[in-house]
Amino acid sequence: MNRPLIVTGTDTDIGKTVFAAGLAAALGAHYWKPVQAGLDDGSDSGRVAALGVPKDKILPEAYRLTTPCSPHRAAEIDGVTIDPAQLDLPDIAGPLVVEGAGGALVPVTRDLLYADLFARWGAPTIIVARTALGTINHSLLTIEALLSRKVSILGIAFIGEPEPDSEDTICAISGVARLGRLPMLDPLTPDTLAAAFADAFDLAQFA
Rank of each mutant, 00 (worst) to 15 (best):
A104Q: 13
D83F: 02
H72G: 14
L96Y: 08
L51I: 11
T142Y: 04
D56Q: 14
T81H: 04
D91Q: 14
D186V: 11
P60T: 10
G155Q: 13
A74S: 08
C171V: 00
P84L: 09
L87T: 05
F158W: 09
T67D: 11
R130Q: 07
A115C: 08
L182N: 01
W121E: 11
R130H: 05
I153W: 07
P71G: 04
T135V: 06
A85G: 05
K57H: 11
G180S: 05
I127W: 02
L141N: 06
V106Y: 00
G79A: 05
E161R: 13
T192E: 07
P124S: 12
V108A: 10
G122N: 15
L141M: 08
R178C: 10
R110A: 14
D91E: 15
R73G: 11
T109N: 11
G155V: 15
A115Y: 09
Y63C: 02
P71R: 00
L141Q: 06
I127G: 00
P95T: 13
P71V: 02
P54E: 12
I127A: 00
I92C: 12
P190H: 04
T189P: 03
A85P: 05
L113F: 02
A123Y: 09
I170Q: 06
T169F: 00
L112Q: 11
G155D: 13
L146D: 06
P187V: 04
R149K: 14
A132V: 11
G79D: 05
R130G: 02
Y63W: 09
I126K: 00
S70V: 01
R73A: 10
V108D: 11
S70R: 04
L113W: 05
A85W: 01
P124D: 09
I82E: 00
K150N: 15
D111N: 14
G134Y: 01
E144G: 09
G134H: 07
E144I: 07
G103Q: 11
I92W: 08
T109Y: 05
L188W: 00
R73C: 09
E167D: 08
A177E: 06
A101I: 02
G160Y: 00
F158G: 03
D111Y: 11
L89T: 03
K57P: 12
